[in-house]
């Protein structure tokens, strides 16, 4: 028998094994737990029925969606003009202004959120429970804004200036050019910003726990509760599966807009 000859593709074997064991298999486990009755261990839909008949859960889902959509919309509204000014004027000649917008991404996320808590606390935003939602919203916009500026800036910068000139030569006004040419052409950047912000704001409970004063429960927190406090893995897995379906749907929709959208997600473009 001849010794197995080394080839470059064999390097993929340990990698494939690692992914099978730690990425694919756990997802199958989650699906298995989601469809199993925690008491009898038999296959059942009880976890999903429980989830959709609980008022607390449905409220959390509604709050997550509201927070996610509002955060994303506000981030886009602030980030688009920012990216536009940076890409189109001489303010960012040496790249320093852009750097100022990316720099906060390097500072520890939890620490930044804590800093926002100190700021909001010192201006008296923690005096009543009525401000919990707005505090969380401010914190999320603050944390995720850089993730919206970067991809939109990248797209706007690559935009061919001749197209904009052609548009005005053909008689379009400034706002017509903006809404009919510039914004449609920057859709890949906008979509990539949305995919980077929408999901984390629904699931990352760091901001809502720090700034929500215990009054803002999002879907990620529900999963955490089931696993860390209630020890009900089945119910937690069912919520995780509902999330997975949602993620899959968003990917399908956003995939139509940009092929490389996911490449920029988290960390991409940082260095």
């Amino acid at each position: 028998m001849t010794a197995l000859k080394f080839s470059r593709k064999h390097l993929g074997i340990p990698y494939g094994l690692f992914m099978a064991l730690f990425v694919v298999f756990p997802l199958l486990l989650i699906i298995y737990y989601a469809f199993t009755d925690p008491l009898t261990g038999k296959l059942s839909l009880i976890n999903f029925i429980d989830f959709f008949t609980s008022n607390a859960n449905l409220t959390a889902m509604f709050i997550s969606l509201a927070l996610a959509i509002l955060t994303t919309a506000i981030c886009l509204l602030i980030a688009y003009p920012t990216a536009y000014i940076l890409a189109r004027t001489d303010m960012n000649k040496n790249g320093i202004m852009l750097l100022l917008f990316i720099l906060p991404m390097w500072i520890n996320f939890v620490l930044r959120t804590a800093a926002m808590k100190e700021l909001l606390f010192s201006i008296g935003m923690f005096k009543s429970n009525k401000t919990s939602f707005i505090n969380t919203l401010i914190g999320m916009v603050y944390d995720y804004l850089p993730f919206a500026v970067l991809p939109i800036y990248t797209v706007l910068q690559k935009l061919d200036k001749n197209i904009l000139e052609a548009s005005s030569d053909l008689g379009a006004s400034g706002s017509q050019t903006l809404f009919k040419v510039t914004i449609p052409l920057s859709m890949p950047g906008i979509v990539s910003a949305i995919t980077m912000i929408l999901l984390p704001t629904m699931t990352s409970y760091v901001v809502s726990d720090t700034l929500g004063n215990g009054n803002v429960t999002i879907i990620g927190k529900l999963i955490e509760n089931q696993f860390s406090t209630m020890y009900n893995w089945n119910a937690g897995s069912a919520i995780a599966m509902i999330l997975l379906v949602f993620i899959f749907a968003t990917m399908l929709i956003s995939g139509k807009f940009s092929e490389e959208g996911s490449q920029d997600a988290r960390g991409g473009g940082l260095w």
């Binding site: 756990p26 997802l27 984390p200 990352s204 409970y205 990620g220 995780a240 999330l243 990917m251 997600a265």
Partner: peptide, 11 residues
């Protein structure tokens, strides 16, 4: 990359 962090964490 695209999965929610909490799902990766529990898995």
């Amino acid at each position: 990359v695209i999965n929610a962090e909490i799902v990766t964490a529990i898995s």
